[in-house]
Computed example of a mutant assay.
Amino acid sequence: MTFALVALGGAMGACLRFLTDRWVQARHDTGFPWGTLVVNAVGSLLLGLLTGATLFGAPAPTALVGVGFCGALTTFSTFGYESVRLLTDGARLFAVLNVVGSVLAGLGSGAVGVVLAAAIWG
Rank of each mutant, 00 (worst) to 15 (best):
G43E: 03
L8P: 01
V115W: 12
G57M: 13
L86A: 01
L49S: 10
G57N: 15
W34S: 11
A91Y: 04
G57C: 10
L45I: 13
L37W: 12
V39R: 10
Y81G: 00
T2F: 05
V24C: 06
G113V: 04
V103M: 07
P59D: 15
V112F: 04
L8N: 00
T62A: 14
A14F: 01
L46R: 07
P61I: 14
L16G: 04
P33A: 08
G35D: 12
A41T: 09
G48V: 06
G10T: 03
T78S: 03
L87P: 13
P61M: 08
G35F: 06
A11M: 11
E82L: 08
V103Y: 02
A63W: 08
L5G: 07
F56A: 12
G57R: 12
D89P: 10
P33N: 12
F56S: 14
A11N: 09
T51G: 14
V42A: 15
V99W: 02
G106A: 07
E82P: 03
L8C: 03
V84G: 01
Y81M: 02
L47N: 05
A58N: 15
H28D: 08
L37T: 03
F79E: 06
V96S: 08
A118G: 14
V84K: 00
G90C: 09
E82Q: 14
G122N: 06
V114C: 03
R22Y: 07
F56Q: 11
N98V: 01
F32Q: 05
G66L: 13
A14K: 01
A95H: 05
R17Y: 10
A118R: 15
A111R: 09
V65R: 11
I120Q: 10
A7V: 03
V99I: 14
V6A: 03
L86K: 00
G113K: 10
R22D: 15
V103H: 05
G110F: 05
T75N: 12
L8M: 02
L86W: 00
W34Y: 14
G48F: 05
N40F: 08
A41W: 12
L116P: 00
T51N: 07
A119C: 13
L104T: 04
E82M: 03
G52M: 13
D21R: 10
V84E: 00
A4T: 14
L107W: 05
F56I: 07
C70M: 09
T51Y: 11
Y81W: 03
S102P: 06
L107S: 05
L104N: 02
L37F: 14
Q25D: 12
G43L: 02
G106E: 01
F3D: 07
V112L: 07
A60M: 15
P33V: 11
F79A: 08
S102Q: 09
V115H: 07
V42E: 12
